[in-house]
Amino acid sequence: MYVTGLVTALRAEASCVSSMRVPLNEMVQINDYTVLCLSGMGAEAARIAAEELLRQGVTALASFGVAGALDPCLKPGDLVLPGVIIHSTDQLPVNVTWRDRLQRLLPTDITVINGVLTDSAVPVTDENAKRDLAHVTGACAVDMESGAIAVVAAEAGIPFIAVRVIVDPVQFSPPQALLGAVYPDGGVNSLHLMALLLKRSVHLRTLMQMGVGMRAARKTLSRVIQSAGVGLDSQETDRLIA
């Protein structure tokens, strides 16, 4: 029997998997087939979470959350189920059998892209930087955690998939100034944010646009869970990839 370890960086992502309050950096048993970890943002946090999930006995890993678009055709709410993860200069595969089965379970009105997903050591907060990254890597989307999780899975010889939904298009990114007001789990320091608004370092319309993107992304993430289950069909995965 495969037990899937889900790694999410943000609390907003974890809430699409479970309504329980998930503590940061703790393993939460969702059911017999699924363990969830809210890692916080970044590759190092994701690596630590994935390694701890292995110690807890999971036999498959999934990176679950949001991503930034590198392809101008992608919009918030579009689902990226990549076949390749670019981590530094390495290309790491996903388990295509598992990915394809998951994709067949999804509603047909969800836009699904099977492109390349690349990682970034830092948030990509500029349109030109996104276009440059797309040119160098050939990727359609970027996140900060999937590459690290893929490395852990590859080293352990266990199945891995990434389930990433676009939260911001190429033309829009969260401003650099906002990053200092964000906690590792994606929560916001309200006092710091208010100061940024008063200084006009961040504009209200920017926050509203970010909220629209996150709502669209969370809607798709929730529909993936509703269609495939919190283990992303781990029982069938056991049969297909054993």
Rank of each mutant, 00 (worst) to 15 (best):
K130E: 10
G42K: 08
V112C: 09
S88K: 15
A162N: 01
I113C: 09
G229F: 07
I161H: 12
G5D: 00
S15Q: 09
I241F: 11
E52I: 11
H203K: 14
L79Q: 02
K199P: 01
F160Q: 03
N25K: 13
L38Q: 04
L24F: 04
S18Y: 07
I241H: 12
N95L: 11
T8H: 02
M1N: 11
G231E: 00
L198K: 10
L196V: 04
Y183C: 15
H87Q: 11
Q171V: 14
A162L: 05
G83N: 14
L133Q: 04
I86N: 03
Y33P: 01
P184E: 03
F172Y: 04
L106E: 00
T97S: 13
Q209L: 10
R99H: 07
I158V: 03
C140R: 09
Q56G: 15
P159L: 09
N25E: 13
S88R: 14
S222Y: 09
L53D: 02
F160K: 02
L240P: 06
I113A: 13
I241V: 13
A43Y: 10
V182D: 02
A49R: 05
Y33R: 15
S201Y: 07
A9Q: 06
I85A: 06
G157I: 01
D109F: 08
V151Q: 11
Q235Y: 14
R223C: 08
S19D: 13
V182N: 01
M144E: 02
W98D: 05
L6C: 09
N95H: 13
P184D: 04
G180L: 03
A46H: 10
T206I: 09
I166L: 00
T59E: 00
F172T: 02
R205L: 12
G83K: 15
M214S: 07
L105P: 00
E236A: 12
I225R: 10
S227Y: 05
L74V: 01
V188R: 03
L232A: 01
D126R: 08
A9P: 07
I48E: 12
I241Q: 11
D32C: 10
P159S: 06
G138Q: 00
N114I: 07
R101S: 12
S146G: 05
Q171P: 07
W98F: 07
G42N: 07
L193K: 00
A154E: 14
S234M: 10
S88Y: 14
G186I: 04
I110R: 01
R200M: 08
R47T: 14
I225T: 11
L53Y: 05
D109M: 04
D109Y: 12
N128Y: 15
L207V: 03
L81S: 00
L106A: 00
R164A: 03
S15F: 08
E13W: 09
H192K: 15
Q209A: 10
S18C: 02
G68Y: 09
Q91W: 14
A46G: 05
G211I: 06
C73A: 15
D100T: 06
A181F: 05
A228Y: 04
G187E: 11
D185Q: 03
G180A: 09
L179Q: 13
T137W: 06
H192I: 14
R218Q: 12
A216F: 10
A14Q: 07
